[in-house]
Design a protein around this nucleic acid. Sequence first.
DNA 1: ACCTGAACACCGTTCAAGT
DNA 2: ACCTGAACACCGTTCAAGT
Lengths: 220, 220
Amino acid sequence: MKLGKGRPERRRDALNRRAIAQHALMLIDADGLEALSMRKLGAVLGVEAMAMYHHYRNKAQLLDGVLELLIEEAEPPPASQLTPLQRIRRCFENMRRLAIAHPQAFVLLPTRRFRTPPVLEFYERLLQNFADAGFNAAQAARYFRVLAGFVTGAGLAEIGSRAQQPDATPVILENFSDAARFPRVTEVVPHLRVAKLEAIFTFGLDLIFAAMASELSGER
Amino acid sequence: MKLGKGRPERRRDALNRRAIAQHALMLIDADGLEALSMRKLGAVLGVEAMAMYHHYRNKAQLLDGVLELLIEEAEPPPASQLTPLQRIRRCFENMRRLAIAHPQAFVLLPTRRFRTPPVLEFYERLLQNFADAGFNAAQAARYFRVLAGFVTGAGLAEIGSRAQQPDATPVILENFSDAARFPRVTEVVPHLRVAKLEAIFTFGLDLIFAAMASELSGER
DNA sequence: ACCTGAACACCGTTCAAGT
DNA sequence: ACCTGAACACCGTTCAAGT
């Protein structure tokens, strides 16, 4: 039977790399990175676990596929919009949003190396904005590293704050006696509540971008 | 038989929380966080896997025990030494050293919440230095978050760079044709080699500490 | 080319039992 | 109190086989 009328559908739209990665991300969002298994993923996709090995060499490469989906959401605005510095800032603000939107998957961003073409293409576009802004390669490397370090580190910390209650802090103070035992922690913790984290993130970005702007204007 | 002469030794010095965590850290350092298993850890300690459950409720709490060992190595200098700002800086420089000394375990620092007493005590001592420097609680929260974010994020990135070759970069450019395809990445990557990372880290810390000093001197 | 199914060598954790 | 040993419900991945 060729392309006849009532020909049975190919499983469910056939498997492909992107669909597999998308469902993996959904499972991670729902149950956490550790809970992702090839078997559960297969069950969600209506397929045996081993079917995925035709599309990804192993689980590590599947996680690289998930990373590709994440960085898509951090894409800087096109070169036709805003100034280069503003585009760079948008990109890193998008990364913070990523931490909030995918708290369980976000750790892939700072822990997996950039190795697949889509991720390298993203990196290329981001670095082009540094060149457009007027930075040479050494300056771009410095500020990229400082920005990426701050944004990913702050993102992970913010995830810790948001993990449990909506107004949680990254520190767990169990009972009231802790106020006497940890007075400095007790007074600082209210200032690290979820509602205050965006202002702190902005504060950190302002600090770094002020240095970038002043370097570009030759004030150093 | 009570305390007689030739009484057989208690297994091997008896198990305790610290010894278990220390051997867990050794296994993580050797084979990675994912490779740590209760069974392998038991084998190293000459004991069944289940013996550890008498000292830690589960594997997650064991990892909190490993975190306690890590933060010991980041301890700020005592209040009798240096200025408060210098003591804070030393503490975060120690954290970077931690990333290099324990690259496979370092991710525990930004991903696990501060919940056990030894970790909270460390946090209390670190925050006391912010108070000593003259920061109020809101300022301490801001700069702590910015510093911790930058240091942990930069630490994770540096681990990626050091992962493979001694002069590796966090990006993998497979073949020469990539230079044409990713020109900006190609020119920036040499500036992110391992030998340059300490200078970039120092650059980032300088930037943040300059802002802290200027806020303290009332220039804002 | 794409998927299945059995098999291998592992996991964390429970429970009941030993001393 | 501290540890063992069997058992349960899982893992990632290999391999040979199906279509």
